[in-house]
Design a protein around this nucleic acid. Structure first.
Length: 479
RNA sequence: CGGCGCGUGGCUCAGUUUGGUAGAGUGCUGCGUUCGGGACGCAGAGGUCGCAGGUUCAAAUCCUGUCGCGCCGACCA
């Protein structure tokens, strides 16, 4: 009992202080360390392995849709960044500048990319000459720098890892189709692979990306009821093309501007995984994502034959899932706790009693449910358990999300709900930015998105001003 | 950038009010006993107290500045 108490002390409980719980989990699961530069984190093996698996799976899905990877420089000349007015206004406040090469001042200062639209545009301008050159569907995996004032591991760091896709199309329709295709790809990825349910929708004018014609988003709900924008897809129309002169000759031998999109998803998603699935014992990883899916923990491994058997189990399981054996000389109890903090989905306990009975004890990380599994059935039972756990985690997150969606029909109700009920608030909106500003100003609630799939008209009047309204908006406090 | 809190062995912190030899727990190394929910004994290694000035016979402690970290707010993936 005293030992359990120590466990609880190691990680602050969610209930007590959610922000501190988050920081504790990030550190205890050994995902990152802080570095010498404010807001720049050292991603440790356990954290980087998550990103590698996200990358691997996303990249596979991208390529199925015809995406090709490229790599662009990390520096953008100031003159290039300034070409699209809205874009530079959006990003200028948070770019880092390189002003010197060695001891000598540069003729033109270079910004460290906060995003690479301008570089891709400059590149496409010469690359694309004919309709035969279209579409271009390029993506890059890289890091970008945004000089944030307030930083938090994964959620907001000054340098972060992401992918940014940049495409050019002949027609507005093609660009719109790609924009939505990628948003759906992100949403499916989050739901299938990360077990995180998302709301797909469109950003309002106020919330859209600097320079975009339309921005689409997937919004996830964290355990504390705050929303996290988890991926975005933008349709640029021909705005950037006109600013950068990206023209091609069409079939009628006329010059036309291309239509562009961009879409991105970042290491921020790791923050979502923590805050959607984690609990007071630490991280809980969805099996499909988990770098290690099963940890075999021998009990009384000094006893003759135990370690041999554990190795045999590890090797057999290794053929059906990602398995490790913890044969370090820590006590079993220590290993159990360690495995829980790191979020490893399944633990296999194997001791003399089990070996005698020809079985082992399998413990699920999410429910802590213990199952006795015959050693003969390992290769079939363990994958089944992993699959069930993945599904259960999604269902649990979905149930949590859906039970944290409330409706508001007028401002008083909106204020009351924002105050007392964490989560999304559905409310009709007249379309004016005045209302959006007022809601944000007075209630600290922002428009998360105009949903695709939930178009229910919960009333006919704006939740803020009471005028006629036809647009349903998901509102919420956000990270 | 505003508000609050914090910087002392790898980690968590005590010591600062009232200046006087650098402390604890945990972790680490070695040996032995243990092992089904963070085991224990013995022996060791490890810190110019974030940094820079100042006051003083004497500074972790007082003063000034500066950098960093956390949380809340504004801004943003």
């Amino acid at each position: 009992m005293a030992k359990e108490k120590k466990l609880v002390e190691a990680i602050t409980s969610m209930e007590e202080d959610f922000a501190q719980w988050y920081t504790d989990v990030v550190k205890k699961a050994e995902l990152i360390d802080y570095s010498a530069v404010k807001g720049c984190m050292i991603i440790k093996p356990a954290g980087y392995a998550l990103w590698e698996n996200i990358q691997k799976e996303l990249d596979r899905r991208f390529k199925e849709t015809g995406v090709e990877n490229v790599y662009m420089p990390m520096f953008i000349p100031e003159s290039l960044l300034e070409k699209e007015k809205d874009h530079v206004e959006g990003f200028a406040p948070e770019v880092a500048w390189v002003t010197h090469g060695g001891a000598n001042p540069l003729q033109e200062r270079l910004c460290v990319r906060p995003t690479s639209e301008t570089l891709f545009c400059d590149f496409y301008k010469n690359l694309i000459q004919s309709y035969r050159d279209l579409p271009k569907v390029y993506n890059q995996w890289c890091s970008v720098v945004r000089w944030e004032k307030e930083t938090r591991p994964f959620l907001r760091s000054r340098e972060f890892l992401w992918q940014e896709g940049h495409t050019a199309h002949a027609t507005a329709e093609d660009a719109q189709e790609r924009t939505i295709q990628m948003l759906n790809l992100y949403a499916d990825f989050c739901e299938d692979f990360l077990a995180i349910p998302v709301i797909r929708g469109q950003k309002t004018e106020k919330e859209k990306f600097a320079g975009a014609e339309e921005t689409y988003t997937i919004e996830a709900l964290m355990h504390d009821g705050k929303a996290l924008q988890s991926g975005t897809s933008h349709n640029f129309g021909d705005g950037f093309a006109k600013a950068f002169g990206i023209q091609y000759t069409d079939k009628e031998n006329k010059l036309s501007y291309v239509h562009q999109t961009s879409w991105g998803l970042s290491t921020r998603l790791i923050g979502a995984i923590i805050m959607v699935h984690g609990d007071d014992s630490g991280l809980v990883l969805p099996p499909k994502l988990a770098p290690v899916q099963v940890m075999v923990i021998p009990v009384q491994m000094q006893k003759e034959g135990v370690l041999d058997k554990a190795e045999e189990v590890r090797n057999r399981l290794g053929s059906v899932c990602r398995t490790k054996l913890d044969s370090s000389d820590k006590s079993p109890g220590w290993k159990f706790s360690e495995q829980e903090m790191r979020g490893i989905p399944l633990r296999v306990e194997l001791g003399p009693k089990d070996i005698e009975a020809g079985s082992c004890v399998v413990v699920r990380r999410d429910t802590r449910e213990k199952t006795k599994v015959s050693l003969d059935n390992l290769e079939t039972e363990i994958p089944k358990l992993l699959e069930t756990m993945q599904k259960d985690m999604y269902e649990r997150a979905l149930a949590h999300r859906d039970s944290h969606i409330n409706d508001a029909h007028n401002f008083a109700e909106l204020a009351q709900t924002a105050e007392s009920k964490p989560g999304f608030i559905r409310g009709m909106w007249c379309g004016s930015q005045e209302c959006e500003d007022r809601i944000k100003e007075e209630l600290a609630v922002t428009s998360r998105c105009i949903p695709f799939h939930d178009k229910e008209q919960i009333s006919s009047t704006c939740v803020c001003c009471g005028k006629e309204a036809h647009t349903l908006v998901y509102w919420g406090k956000a990270y």
